[in-house]
Computed example of a mutant assay.
Amino acid sequence: MAEFVHVAGRVWVCVGDPDPEFVQAGVALVADERGSVLVDAGQSPSHAREIQAALAAAGLPAPRWLVYTHHHWDHVWGACAWPDVEIVGHATGAELLRAEAARPWSIPYLRAEVLRNRRLGPSFRARALAVDSWDELTVLPPTRVFTDELELPTGVVVRHVGGRHAPDSTVVVVPDSGVMLLGDSWYPPPAHLRTPEDAPDLALVARLLDDDIGWYVSSHSPPMTLAAARAAVAG
């Protein structure tokens, strides 16, 4: 059952299902009465509805902005279930998502793609499990794009960092709360593109560490304090 837990200041996190078979990313909310910022959309319309119910149960304000940390399906396929939000994302991700939106997503299409490339199997099986109705799925590119950095009216900073996991990887910084939301930025490439040499990009994390940021939150990992993040980088 989806549930929001408080991290620090205005930042709340709803963790994803830890079972790797489901490939379910967590989402975060930066709460603000002027309009909250939702970071990532959920992996499907049904997951987005679970997140909406968790928002209501926690008494948190509805989002006005939805920020994509990157274009991968488990972060964006829930966007079509979020009404009245401005979707913010990196220009590279916007291009990639326009191509994704044109694909004929369905069980027959997933099956055909896996037969073409067996390495897609785990990801595409997870997509089949995630989507209740293909008729309700619409892949949405961002409606507001940026290239380097963007500050939203509520003081939330969106910053492109790139990396090997996705070219459009973006972190979200909430300075007044001392929180940085990392998305998947430091993870190795997706499984179907990964080689045995690929590993977590700890150098990227090291570049992001900041004495003014006390918490670091990744999409598929528990929140880490600055001290724990430094220890992880140091090995």
Rank of each mutant, 00 (worst) to 15 (best):
V174K: 01
Q43R: 12
P141F: 02
R118Y: 04
L129V: 10
F146K: 11
R116I: 11
G178D: 08
V39Q: 06
V158C: 04
I107E: 04
A94W: 15
T92C: 13
S169Q: 07
V179F: 08
W105N: 07
R98D: 11
V171K: 06
T154C: 13
P104L: 10
Y109M: 03
D176Y: 11
T69C: 10
W65G: 04
Q52A: 08
G162T: 11
R98Y: 14
G42K: 01
H165A: 01
R127L: 13
P61E: 15
A94F: 02
R127P: 03
E149W: 10
P83G: 01
V145K: 12
V171L: 09
R116W: 13
Q52I: 10
A112Y: 08
I51M: 11
W134A: 07
P153Q: 09
L152M: 05
H71K: 04
P153S: 14
V67I: 12
A81R: 10
P175T: 03
V131C: 05
V173H: 15
E95D: 07
S123Q: 15
W65V: 01
A99T: 11
P108Q: 01
L96Y: 12
I87D: 00
G178N: 13
L110Q: 10
W134V: 00
L137R: 09
G162V: 06
L38A: 08
G163N: 02
A166R: 08
A54F: 04
T147L: 11
C80P: 09
A79Q: 00
V39L: 08
W105D: 05
S123A: 02
T147F: 02
P153N: 05
R125W: 15
V145R: 05
C80R: 02
A41C: 10
F146Y: 14
L115I: 08
D168R: 03
S46Q: 07
V139I: 02
C80Y: 01
W105G: 01
D135M: 01
E113T: 10
S177K: 06
S169E: 02
E95I: 14
L150I: 15
P142S: 06
R127Q: 10
P45K: 03
V114Q: 09
T147I: 13
H160P: 14
A62E: 07
V161S: 12
A126V: 14
V76H: 09
R64M: 00
A54T: 07
E100R: 13
L97N: 07
A56Q: 07
T147Q: 08
A99I: 06
T92M: 15
V156I: 08
E149R: 05
L55Y: 12
E136R: 05
